[in-house]
């Protein structure tokens, strides 16, 4: 589901081990707006290529995609990914941005969804149920992350960040964020 593309054909100058190491480092880089998720959990890392250059140094090429077009977090994520890789000893790092295919919450990892819930944010559904512009539609059965009730209501389609909607639980009355399907 959260497949990260690797263009490099394993062979001379390629190491699956090094690539795994890069992924481990990226696992430690949080989304600045939802810090309980790593950039890998969020699914914004679309490609990880590693290659050994002529100086016998590892080159890392990443492609990342923004969640929402105007999401200001993407620039911070790119800086933090670079910093983390530098700290881990990688010197040659290239990060490019891709727009297509457009990011979708389907790329969020399973562990990411669990972490979100524990953090008090309802995780996105597997499939976007209301993807048309028709008025007054609501996602069915958004679960309250606090009391697990499905008896909840939409307060606003727009929340504290571009990727979230505001909900309230009708049972425990807790207001909560829903990481909306995209």
């Amino acid at each position: 589901m959260n497949a990260i593309e690797k263009n490099t054909i394993p062979g001379a100058g390629f190491s699956e081990e090094i690539r795994e190491r890069v992924l481990q480092v990226l696992e430690t880089v949080p989304d600045p707006e939802v810090p309980v998720l790593s950039v890998i959990d969020l699914g914004v890392v679309r490609k990880v290529d590693v290659r050994e250059n002529e100086n016998k140094e590892w080159e890392v090429q990443l492609a990342v995609t923004p969640t929402y077009t105007g999401c200001p977090a993407i620039d911070v994520m790119k800086i933090n990914m670079r910093m983390a890789l530098l700290e881990a000893g990688f010197k040659n790092i290239g990060i490019t941005e891709t727009l297509s295919p457009a990011w979708t919450t389907d790329w969020m990892s399973e562990s990411g969804k669990q972490k979100l819930k524990a953090y008090g944010i309802a995780a996105p559904h597997y499939k976007q149920l209301v993807c048309t512009p028709d008025s007054f539609q609501e996602e069915e059965a958004v679960q309250c992350p606090l009391c697990n009730s499905y008896h909840t209501r939409l307060v606003s389609q727009f929340g504290s960040t571009a990727c979230k909607a505001l909900y309230q639980c009708n049972d425990c009355k807790e207001p909560f964020d829903y990481f909306k399907c995209h």
Binding site: G70, F158, A162
Partner: peptide, 9 residues
């Protein structure tokens, strides 16, 4: 939020 989306575009 909508302003942010527009400026992102």
């Amino acid at each position: 939020n909508i302003a942010l989306d527009c400026i992102g575009q």
